[in-house]
Structure formats: structure tokens, C-alpha cells
Nucleic acid binder design. Structure first.
Lengths: 214, 214
DNA sequence: CGGGGTGATGTGACGTTGTTATGTAACACC
DNA sequence: GGTGTTACATAACAACGTCACATCACCCCG
């Protein structure tokens, strides 16, 4: 029937937008079309307009974040794993701050809401493992624990990304926030601190900066 | 010598911007000029352009936030006061979410950085009172405690304001986050929980919505 | 008390943004 | 191989932030 839409153009538009974001260059319909080698019309056939492109960019951001979190190894210490997830999360925001901001400009509006849910599920699952391992209170709700944990990390990330706190605040307050959330959930303070510090130094702060596949 | 700039116009522009923000209506140079009854040029004499106007709007947002936090009464239980401050903070974000978003779009770029510092200082001072009262660890740093406390509150507020979490999450996770931060800082869990719940129900959730003086 | 100069303000125009109407060309199906 | 449907390029449109220019109000000084 119709002429098929070129999926490569769609991919190029999203990836180019992410690249411009990482370069701190303006992301406009024309700058995208020029770099990709198409016209601004392609943007409308694939995304319906700029809001649709941003939705796709946020989606891609959560896909990349999910990949990073999924790459965090699972050890037999779930609290350590939670800390490693937190470090990887904050490092993700630090490595590509403009993408992080774009993601949370409207994080509830994604092409595939599942990609954000999947990333968050890694947190919930780790919290549940910690609970089943006896590290957290038996009555603790892994979803609530993960939500508080995430809220703290997101708040710290946003304050750094928007320039309110210096970049060092991530390494300074990140572990402290993690320990707070997990001790509140039932972990024993001394043991929690040890696990968190182990997980933090073991995983975080590895990424040199924003990367664009290609 | 010269013709003096009308301070009333300046005030009207900032307050009108805040009002449009609260009404979820677009804040453009022309819509502002029309509503205030001037031309777009006034925007340039007073603020140098739209970025300058946004800087003034953020400033006004922090002034209002500071007023709200300063209105929180001081009791002889500093942990309860910290909870009341947290409740007032989150209620502020809930009452005027678009202003809150605008404030933290570039919270480090204000006309008078002191207004944000002053608001934050209320938190630090309460944390210090808690420490001196023996509720927090002697070695705890009030600044670090306040920063973690703020990061958690800001993260929760942003997740709600951007639609990721429902509005109920504020009352659901707010006290939990507060308890976590303060127990981690040294308070005794049971006593902390009681103080936080008392402070939260005593102060928060009072504002009916965004208000515009005049 | 009246000119002169300084600066705020209104008018109109410019470049850029997102968006869309129109024409064209390429693909899938009969 | 013809036909219809759809993606894409071109070009125009409305709205945005911004700025050059002209105008006017005000304050100091003679």
C-alpha cells in the first residue's frame, strides 16, 4: 500500500537530538533536519511534531538509563547492590546532565512507559531482595522504599544538574542519602554504611561523559 | 536627571508572570505586556529580556517560599519544626507547581541569591537546634543534614510536579523521607517518628492553591 | 520659570522558532 | 505496469524574543 517510513531516519533524529543535547547545542527542528540530512517534515511524519520528538528523546534516555542500571552486577549483598544502583544512577545524570533534565521535563509522558517502569523495577527488586535477606524490616514495602530512595537520588541529581549544588555533592551526599533511606527501612546502621560504601566505590563514577552510539 | 523607571511596572510584570504561571497560561513577552498594559519594551528596560524576567520570577518564587517557611512556628521540639518546614515546603510546591518548576529551572541564577540562602538557612538553623538539643548526633553537620533533607523533599516535589508520582505521594512519602534523613543524622527512630508526624499534621496541607496578592 | 538632555516607553520591523499546505516522487498492491 | 497511498522537499504562515527608531515625560540647570 503506502510508502514505508524509513526507521533509520527516525533513529537518526532521536540520536542526533540526544547528541545535540550532550553538546549543549540548541535542539531545533531545523538543526535536527540539517544534521540528519532531511527536512523538517520528516519530523512530523515520524513524531507528529517537536513534542513527539521530545517524547522519543525522553524514551531513549530512559532506555539508556535502564541499560546502565541493568549492567550493575548483582552480588549476594542486596544493600550493596542498591548503593551501586544509586551510584550508577547519579553517574548517569552527571555524565549527560542535559539529557537527564530533558527526561524529567515530563517523565510521565513517554512512548513506552514500560522502559521507565523497567528501570525502576530494578530498584524495587533490589529492595525486595534486601527485605527477603533480612536486611530490611519484614513489613517494609519494597515499592515505598524504592520510591523514597529514588526521590532522594532524583532530588540530589536535579540540584546538581541545575547548578544549585556543585558536582561534588553527588559523591558527598549520595551515600548519605542511601544510608538514610535504607536504615529507615530497617537495615542496621553500621552494616548498612559498610554495604553502601562498598557498593558506591565499587560501581559508580566510571563514565567519562556523554556517549553517542555510532 | 533621567526619567525614572516605574517600579510598579516592574512589580506588575513579575506578579503577572507568576499569575499566568499559576493559571497554566503561556508566559510570553506579548501576553505579559498586554495584561500589564505596557509594551514589550518595558520588559527590556526592567529586566533586559525574557531571561531576566524569569530570573525575577524565580526570585519572587523563593521570596514567597521563604515567607511561608518563616511563618512556620518554632516549638521546643526542633525535629517537629523540621517536619513542619518540610510539610510547608511540599505544600508550597503542590499549591503552585508551575512556579515551583520555574524556580528550579535555574535556581542558581537569581537576582538576589540571598533569598534562597535565607530560606535554606531556616532548615539549617532548625537542624542545628536539633543537634544542640541532643536530638541529632553531636558530630552531625547541620548543613549536610539540611542538604540531604532538602534533596529528598525536592526530589519528591519534582516527581509529583512533573506528574511521575500522584499528588498523594507527598503526604505518603514526605514524612517517611523526613524520618529517614533525621534518624540517619542521629535521632532516635521512635521519638523521631512521633515528632515528624506531629509536625507534619500540625503545619502542612493548609494552602488552598496558588494565590496572587492584589 | 523655561529650555535641554537623559532615559523610559510605544511602534514597527527583523530573524528564528514550530507548524502546515502544496507538490512530487517512491513504494506496495492488483 | 498502472494506481493509489504515503513519505519527503519546498515554501509559506503565525508566534515568539529582540531591537532600531521615534516620541515623550521627567529632572537639573540657567
Amino acid at each position: 500500500m503506502p510508502r514505508a517510513a524509513d526507521p533509520a531516519v527516525r533513529l537518526a533524529l532521536v540520536e542526533t537530538a540526544a547528541e545535540l543535547l550532550a553538546r549543549r547545542e540548541p535542539v531545533t527542528a531545523r538543526s535536527l533536519a540539517d544534521r540528519v540530512g532531511t527536512s523538517t517534515t520528516a519530523l512530523y511524519t515520524h513524531f507528529g511534531g517537536m513534542p513527539g520528538l521530545w517524547r522519543a528523546v525522553r524514551n531513549e534516555g530512559f532506555v539508556r538509563l535502564g541499560r546502565r542500571l541493568a549492567a550493575v552486577p548483582r552480588t549476594d549483598d542486596p544493600v550493596r547492590d542498591l548503593a551501586a544502583l544509586g551510584a550508577a544512577y547519579l553517574d548517569s545524570a552527571r555524565a549527560d546532565p542535559f539529557l537527564y533534565r530533558a527526561m524529567f521535563d515530563a517523565a510521565a509522558d513517554l512512548e513506552e512507559p514500560a522502559v521507565a517502569d523497567d528501570a525502576f523495577a530494578l530498584l524495587v527488586e533490589a529492595a525486595d531482595r534486601a527485605r527477603r535477606a533480612g536486611r530490611l524490616a519484614e513489613a517494609s514495602d519494597p515499592l515505598a522504599v524504592a520510591t523514597c530512595y529514588w526521590a532522594g537520588g532524583h532530588g540530589l541529581a536535579m540540584l546538581v544538574v541545575t547548578g544549585v549544588l556543585p558536582a561534588e555533592a553527588l559523591a558527598l551526599h549520595g551515600p548519605e542519602l542511601a544510608v538514610a533511606a535504607l536504615v529507615a527501612a530497617g537495615d542496621e546502621p553500621g552494616r548498612c554504611r559498610a554495604s553502601v560504601l562498598a557498593g558506591w566505590s565499587g560501581a559508580g563514577a566510571r563514565d567519562p561523559g556523554p556517549t553517542t552510539p555510532g
